[in-house]
Amino acid sequence: MPAFSDYNPIVVFIYFLTVAGLAMFIMNPVILGISLFGALICFRSRTRGKKDRSSGLFIGLFLLLALLNPLFHHNGATVLFLINDNPITLEALLYGFTSATMVVSVIYWFRSFSLLMTGDRLLYVFGKVSPKFSLMLSMSLRYIPLFATQARKIKASRKALGLWKEDNLWDAVKGGIRGFICLAGWSLENGIITVDSMEARGYGSGKRSFYSRYSFSLWDLGMLILILALTSVVIVSKAMGALDFGFYPRIGGELMTGAAAGAYACYTVLVLLPLGQIIREAGYGREKERKNGNH
């Protein structure tokens, strides 16, 4: 079985779209709990060994979002206490927590998405939609680090002439803007070389093909079918109302019906799909350790 990140980028792309999409639009505490759990595990499994410095920020965001709702929404039957004569209700608080879970889990899904869908892979997906757009993206990704380097050079050389002072804010701003204009001039003027280089290599001479190094194997097909099947089960359950859960005026709806349990199970499998390979890798790592230990 290939590593999850080795599947065809389109499969990975669709995976993230569905898993985050489902979380975004099913206001069901269990589904969202699974989503947050899966998103965190997926993200942590990709950043093993590295400290996630931003986790504090996201805990803060979670609490903020969770507590924001009861301050604005006062419907709900169970009044906990009053602030400025406004009732704070249990229902609104729970709704806030559920919403916060959704937002934070989706953010984490997208963080994993950024780690897995690196430049090349994303360009491949875009290339399937629009080769021209994809080429422009690729060119931009080539220009951005080039411009950053040139911006540093501009700053150094203008500083060493006293043309870019940083003694006070206004001087710094003026220096920065002139530096930017310099960069704009440099990049636009030199762009003509790029144009020549493209045309010299036949750009615009006819229909382009799109070179990709990713193939679509049976594994990819299998994974895609699995993802779509699991997603369909959840969507169908949702459409049939099995996942409905009301917050106002009173928390209502059965969370644990049989139909719902099926959807939960499917969604759990879905969020854990990226881990298949991790588990194998971990096993491989242990095996390697054992081997090394023997030596």
């Binding site: 430049g119 090349d120 690729s138 060119m139 080539r142 030199n190 070389i193 790029t194 280089s197 493209m198």
Partner: peptide, 10 residues
């Protein structure tokens, strides 16, 4: 110019 003849990022 080695720099600007290059079109793509990889």
């Amino acid at each position: 110019d080695p720099e600007h003849q290059i079109v793509t990022d990889k």
